[in-house]
Write a protein that binds this DNA or RNA. Structure first.
Lengths: 158, 158
DNA sequence: ATCCCTGCAAAGGGTTTGCAGACGC
DNA sequence: GCGTCTGCAAACCCTTTGCAGGGAT
């Protein structure tokens, strides 16, 4: 079983990325956080990616491009970005968290191949019906969900 | 924010537990694993619980009852039990995995309160419709899923 | 000038592993 | 008796933390 990252998701054009930077900037401002070059460099690196990556991959990637960052700052910035909803953090099955950018993309869920580890995205509007109904039934105010399907992809069957 | 375990789920009567033991026993046999007293003691401890627990809680619990087990054996047995579908392993958001028994209970999903950490279970048949449709669309053979909803429970609202 | 943020390295916490003795089979 | 399982403790890996210097405000 060979796990591999998957390139997927829409591209981010320059206009959208401008909006992302502004959103991050104002979030930092309103929360009393400084606007450091490291934070924006990390944001940029994340938005140039299209896959689900872990903190270390991001760190190594920036190192290889001669950005001078530390793991501590990568983790710190990932947390801030998660808090302001520009990044989504996933705890799939492995020990380490996976992240993906989140601005301007349709809400989606994931399909994971147990054979090769491939991660595929999908959307299904019916999930909203389920969340709102269950929330009402259980007296919860639901504001988020994670749905992950597991199986074998076309290549890994038979 | 004070996280607390939740007592929930159906009780396991003696008849059902007998079946569970037999299932475990034959799984061990067919897979060339030995039937050690530790493994059955751990199975029994798990099925006497009704909550979502982590490996260490299970370990401490057995220690407190003067079972002589090691963490290594607890982890080992949890993995075997997960493989034979008598236990489900969850990677919610915390660093540590949570487990729950899985025999003879309806398939269900989870609702997690972001306030107090309470975990509530629910069933919704529509999920099967989604999994089968998405599987067909994406050419995946789906055989499992995890749906988790996040929000605030009645007690933690306002 | 303040004091938050950074880099570095060490600590932390859950899980896995290596090894010698124990015990199913 | 063979070969796996166990307990113990150390190793491992990802993530967080402590600290001293640096830079945003």
């Amino acid at each position: 079983m060979q796990h591999q990252p998957v390139e997927q998701g829409q591209l981010v054009d320059q206009d959208n990325f401008q909006k992302v930077k502004e959103e991050f900037s104002s979030f930092l401002e309103t929360h009393g956080h400084r606007k450091t070059p490291e934070r924006f460099a990390i944001l940029e690196e994340i938005y140039s990616r299209q896959d689900h990556f872990d903190a270390d991959a991001l760190f190594m990637d920036m190192k290889s491009k001669n950005f001078r960052v530390s793991r501590a700052t990568v983790y710190n910035t990932l947390e801030i970005l998660t808090n302001c909803n520009l990044v989504i953090k996933h705890q799939f099955d492995s020990n380490n968290a996976l992240y993906e950018r989140a601005y301007g993309f349709k809400q989606h869920d994931h399909l994971i191949c147990k054979g090769c580890g491939k991660i595929v995205e999908f959307c299904d509007p019916r999930i909203h019906g389920i969340t709102s109904m269950v929330g009402e039934l259980m007296k919860f105010k639901i504001d988020d969900h994670k749905l992950t399907l597991y199986g074998l992809c076309g290549d890994c069957q038979d």
